[in-house]
Write a protein that binds this DNA or RNA. Structure first.
Lengths: 145, 145
DNA sequence: ATTAAGTCTATCTTTTCTATATACTTTATC
DNA sequence: GATAAAGTATATAGAAAAGATAGACTTAAT
């Protein structure tokens, strides 16, 4: 399961993505609109900022805006910052690998082999899907109704 | 991430799958061989038994064996028993659906739309992969070395 | 100077996961 | 039929993670 942290992060980025070209948005505004606890959102936005995805401005008239083209911010990047590994077992993780203590032979483990496949299938979608793409999906879904 | 419960469940099923045709195996034997805490494994095997996947025999000379053809036991079934939902967001789950409290419009939610795709990709693998298939993968991996 | 913002770090609370404990039931075997 | 070997069932402890909140600090606009 995606943590709320990650869900909130994506929601905030989508909000900011829709705001491109306009002055920065305040944490409290995003928190209110997306129904995210403000103090929790502060932490999340800080993480995203420290990872280089957001530009922030302190003081009156400050706020947050995207520091990159929404076409160049991919879900996989966000998820690795906020949730960590994409794979369902640590021994199948590319960026957060570690051994299963109880495992006898990793190279011949059938379970690992399946979850490497699952990881690859998941990764294919998450590395392709950008914030811009999510906004696009929403526009398409709205148009369908 | 897969819970240890699910990982242990799959390991136990693979053990039992390799034992087809032989007398039942005792919990303590599986626990020892697979390095799984015995009392924890008891609970897990009970769940699998109550779900109809295992046959059990009490008393001396008792133990567990598969109640189905290992070709007919699929990962998706096990995971739904031990971990619950496959989807990464509750609103994209087929068997454990529930609404995101903070979501404005589910039908037009771009995030949900992505994670429905992820769910489908994951599901395709997990509904195809059986215990027999995992054993087969292991044999292939051993042969490669 | 004052106010409106973000920054940083710590801590609290709740939930979930993992594991263990205890008492009970069934069955084989001597 | 007593005994030991096994599974059954339920409760609970302990640890870790997730979610949320608090408070003091910094920066910038007016």
């Amino acid at each position: 399961m995606l943590s709320k942290k990650t869900k909130y992060a994506i929601k905030a980025l989508v909000s900011l993505g829709k705001n491109m070209g306009n002055p920065p948005i305040q944490i409290s505004k995003i928190a209110e609109e997306e129904k995210i606890p403000k103090k929790f959102l502060e932490q999340i936005l800080l993480d995203l900022r420290n990872a280089g995805f957001l530009y922030s401005k302190k003081g009156a008239g400050g706020g947050y805006s995207l520091n990159k083209d929404p076409k160049e911010i991919f879900l996989v990047q966000i998820m690795r910052i906020t949730d960590g590994p994409i794979a369902m077992v640590p021994c199948a993780s590319l960026n957060f690998y570690h051994k299963c203590e109880e495992c006898k032979s990793e190279t011949t483990c059938g379970i690992r082999s399946v979850f490497v496949d699952v990881r690859d299938a998941t990764l294919q979608i998450l590395t392709e899907t950008s914030i811009a793409n999510i906004i696009e999906r929403e526009n398409n879904l709205i148009a369908e109704v």
